[in-house]
């Protein structure tokens, strides 16, 4: 089994470069899925998202979810990056790059990773509003729990 590349950082990342690094020199990869999650401006009302995280546990939980993905699908490469700190509209928040021999495995593994990152990894989003009003914490969505539970075994 390959070792996943997991990073939690306050620096911007280059999704294209991460994908290129993952598949560089590989001749057995037939499919690579790169998912990027970005900060939306919510129709102009949001100037930034502030992402708080629990250092140590964030890395550990992402690594645990990555390990479960690797146990489920025969991946040939896996990179997961999650940012924290102040992130503006259009900036990237999260990246999952999953490489496999076939597309089904790469698609499923990247979706699995995102579903469980949302419900297990200790990150919290706070909105900074463009009208200067005090922004609130983003509420967790029931739909995210539902998305995670469709994979069967509750891993939390």
């Amino acid at each position: 089994m390959i070792a996943p590349n997991v990073r939690v950082t306050n620096e911007p990342f280059d999704a294209y470069r991460e994908e290129a690094l993952l598949i560089e020199g590989c001749r057995d990869i037939g499919a690579v899925v790169t998912f990027t999650g970005l900060c939306r401006d919510e129709a102009g009302t949001l100037v930034a998202l502030e992402l708080e995280h629990f250092p140590g546990m964030a890395e550990q939980e992402i690594a645990a979810v990555a390990g479960e993905a690797l146990a489920r699908w025969p991946l040939l490469g896996l990179t997961v990056i999650h940012r924290y700190g102040l992130i503006g509209p259009g900036e990237k928040i999260v990246l999952v790059v999953a490489a496999a021999r076939h597309r089904g495995e790469a698609f499923q593994a990247s979706e699995f990773l995102m579903d469980f990152l949302k419900t297990r990894a200790p990150f919290w989003k706070k909105e900074h509003r463009s009208d200067g009003a005090a922004g609130g914490w983003v509420e967790a969505k029931a739909s995210d729990d539902a998305a995670a539970s469709r994979w069967g075994k509750d891993t939390s």
Binding site: G37, L51, A58, W124, A140
Partner: peptide, 10 residues
Amino acid sequence: IAFFPPMTGG
């Protein structure tokens, strides 16, 4: 022991 609201990362 850490306490926090439901997570909203990703």
